[in-house]
């Protein structure tokens, strides 16, 4: 079966500093992939290339569901199929929670307002925010905002969901509610690529864990392989540093 996402020789540099040294990675439909690694290892850059929020080298190629991710008209189409959840939520502060979720289906998919609203309320119920639908994002806690952001991305019925450190900006007591939503989501068969520092989540939910360091994939495997029996020294030392504190 052809992979849903095919990343070949992905290279990215900021000036003289190389962030990604030619990454090859295939992600299958329905797979939940967690990307772990130290800060600056290139893991966020990697997933931001998948919907081309970061431009990448011309020798690289990323194909999502048969469509090449490149500059030009097709890009908005790819992006509509790829949902993204950001570390800092990035909700639209001038729109209510409900309107945040309704906007893209109406503008990009041409959904009718009534239909978009019904779907938005369904999604907000799924992430446990239905009661806050008429509020503005600024009135919500961080955890609530991030759950709205997940609903907003899901409203486009994306083929894949990207999560860029979705719990890193949250107060500790709010991390659980967001991870719970993500766990439920993973159980529904949505393809997910999650950059995270939450090792418990990765171990419990991921089909595959990728450990990155220095702009390369150092090691990948099932959670059991990576967490219980890492082959590489760098993986071992990283896991020791994050798990022992």
């Amino acid at each position: 079966m052809t992979p849903l996402i095919k990343i070949s020789n992905l290279k990215k540099a900021y000036g003289a500093f190389t962030v990604l040294h030619g990454i090859d990675l295939d992600i299958a439909e329905g797979e939940v992939v967690c990307v772990i690694g130290p800060s600056g290892s290139g893991k966020s850059t990697l997933i931001r290339c998948i919907n081309r929020l970061e431009a990448f080298s011309d020798e690289s190629s990323i194909v999502v569901d048969g469509v090449t991710v490149g500059p030009g008209k097709a890009l908005a189409k790819v992006r509509a199929e790829v949902g993204m959840v950001f570390q800092s939520f990035n909700l639209f502060p001038h729109l209510t929670v409900l309107k945040n979720v309704m906007l893209a289906p109406m503008r990009v998919r041409g959904a009718k307002p009534a239909e978009a609203e019904r779907k938005a309320r369904d999604l907000l119920t799924r992430v446990g925010i239905a009661a806050q639908a008429e509020k503005y994002p600024g009135k919500l806690s961080g955890g609530q905002q991030q759950r709205v952001a997940i609903a907003r991305a899901l409203a486009m019925e994306p083929k894949v969901m990207l999560f860029d450190e979705p719990t890193s900006a949250l107060d500790p007591e709010m991390v659980g509610e967001v991870l719970d939503v993500m766990k439920t989501l993973a159980g529904t068969g949505v393809t997910m690529v999650v950059v995270t520092h939450e090792m418990g989540f990765a171990r419990q939910v991921a089909d595959r864990v990728i450990f990155m360091d220095g702009g390369r994939i150092v090691e990948q495997g099932t959670p059991a392989e990576i967490f219980d029996n890492p082959r590489e020294d760098r993986t071992r030392s990283f896991l020791r540093s994050v798990l022992e504190h």
């Binding site: 992006r79 509509a80 790829v82 950001f86 800092s88 909700l91 639209f92 906007l103 503008r107 991305a153």
Partner: peptide, 21 residues
């Protein structure tokens, strides 16, 4: 910048990004 990125990630066109967000 995150407002631009969130709009782009949702697939909004440049025009909709400006007008709506």
């Amino acid at each position: 910048h995150g407002q631009f990125e969130a709009s782009q990630a949702l697939g909004l066109s440049g025009r909709h990004m400006m007008v709506d967000v």
